[in-house]
Design a protein around this nucleic acid. Structure first.
Lengths: 252, 252
DNA sequence: CTTATTTTATCGTTATTTGATAAAATATTA
DNA sequence: TAATATTTTATCAAATAACGATAAAATAAG
């Protein structure tokens, strides 16, 4: 075993279905000796990546809460975009959720969200949850910001491509042209996602800003409102990111 | 250099004041060769701990958003307590913020929070921000859940102890007795913190549930309401945690 | 108190990390 | 575009740390 993966493959075991692990189970899952694992786990507990709990089990530690905050305070996308999510909520005349999402490996992940008090429905795009690349307006808008070569690569590697690569690429061209992606029930039945691409080639950021509403609320009157609110907010976020990338704005 | 600290001491450099680092600056800060750092950083980028950005700088990566979600979905305190923060908001008849906090090394850290739309004031107890152990109701209530030996150790190691150890310990005894800690302006001027201890000796959890309000809103009429709401909610959270710790409730 | 389980310590072998240096890739400037 | 500077990767021998089997210690369970 080598490098950082010694630690990350242990972390990767901890999820909603497996919140707490014994050393014996980790040993079986990773085919690694208990002696080595006790040493690694002791290190990870000292670093607050893990902590020990009942029944000789270990769970994730509070380190990740601290570094989630550090990311919120340093990441140019979150820094520029999160503050617009609540105002955007106010511009949408029906119960909705607003989402800032970005490319994350071979997935798209929400990195900030706001939910109207009136929104009773649940969305799959939760903060921090990796989602499929090729389904839903949020993902499609993110993909549309990428160079063609990278899109084709991601599409070809995707196991769940709903259409062939060229058809998909035509869709991305359309999204780039009108600046909006709209999909119906591709992620959650009964819900509609409407998203605007957000990008900063300078900072290497490929992201999107989305509004999720219930399908029956999407009338021909409110659609233009939503499109306009998304487009203008996306442009403002890009403006703030551009400011962050001016030389000398960093204080290292 | 050894073990996981090779990586964590790099991560520790990234904060609000230093959002992006060059390899040269990291090399100077950690007194480590650039050749080694390029190798470590490459690993950390591959693991999404870091990502590269403009001007040959690196910043924190989105890994921490994903693992913050995993923690939310697996941590017994967050799992049991976060859902009560919004209902608790509703029980407080003035603008307020509700906070779930826990011991984090030699600090206390908020791991979940809710803010009333009407609350215009800013609180220092942000989600994920390590705070001093001996100031503010939130911290005092957490400390009060610990065994005497551990309290004395933490107090003796604290650099900012406002009072001597025995006086402080008497305060913790008082908090344990009435189940509430109330402090005025110890963290933020003009604000009041009111907190109830939250603990599970089974799960090894030492935490607190707090309400932060503006000092001028704390009347003799609403104080009993707040005390009662906090106490009953804290008890419910402890009840949910107890359910999580019954043998066989885990599915490893 | 006894026994079983979990965790830490020890240690030789094996494999990896380190940092100096060189090479390659990328960005900057003329 | 070419030339130069900067950033990043590759190479390699020496130093170091990780591995896992085993034993010892600490803790939990009966």
């Amino acid at each position: 075993m080598m490098g950082i993966t010694r630690y990350t493959r242990i972390l990767a075991l901890f999820d909603e279905e497996h919140p707490a692990w014994t050393v014996a189970d980790i040993s079986a899952a990773l085919d690694t000796s208990a002696s080595t694992l006790y040493r690694l786990i002791r290190e990870m507990v000292a670093a607050d990546f893990l902590e020990s709990t009942v029944e000789s089990r270990y769970r994730l530690g509070p380190f990740f809460v601290e570094y989630y905050r550090r990311l919120r305070l340093t990441d140019p996308l979150v820094l520029s975009g999160a503050k617009f999510l609540r105002p955007l909520l106010g511009q949408i005349p029906c119960p909705c959720t607003t989402i800032l999402a970005r490319l994350y490996g071979k997935t798209v992940m929400c990195v900030a969200e706001e939910r109207a008090n009136t929104a009773s429905f649940a969305t799959s795009y939760e903060l921090g949850r990796p989602m499929p690349l090729l389904r839903g307006a949020t993902s499609m808008a993110v993909l549309s910001t990428l160079p063609k070569r990278q899109i084709m690569k991601l599409v070809s590697e995707a196991s769940d491509a709903p259409k062939d690569a060229d058809t998909l690429y035509a869709e991305f061209t359309g999204i780039r042209k009108i600046g909006i992606s709209e999909t119906h029930g591709q992620v959650d039945p009964g819900l509609v996602g409407i998203a605007a691409p957000v990008r900063s080639t300078d900072l290497g950021i490929n992201a999107s800003l989305s509004v999720i509403i219930e399908q029956h609320n999407l009338t021909t009157e409110i659609r233009p409102h939503i499109y306009a609110a998304l487009s203008s907010t996306a442009r403002m976020i890009e403006g703030f990111m551009a400011e962050l990338s001016v030389p000398g704005a960093h204080i290292p």
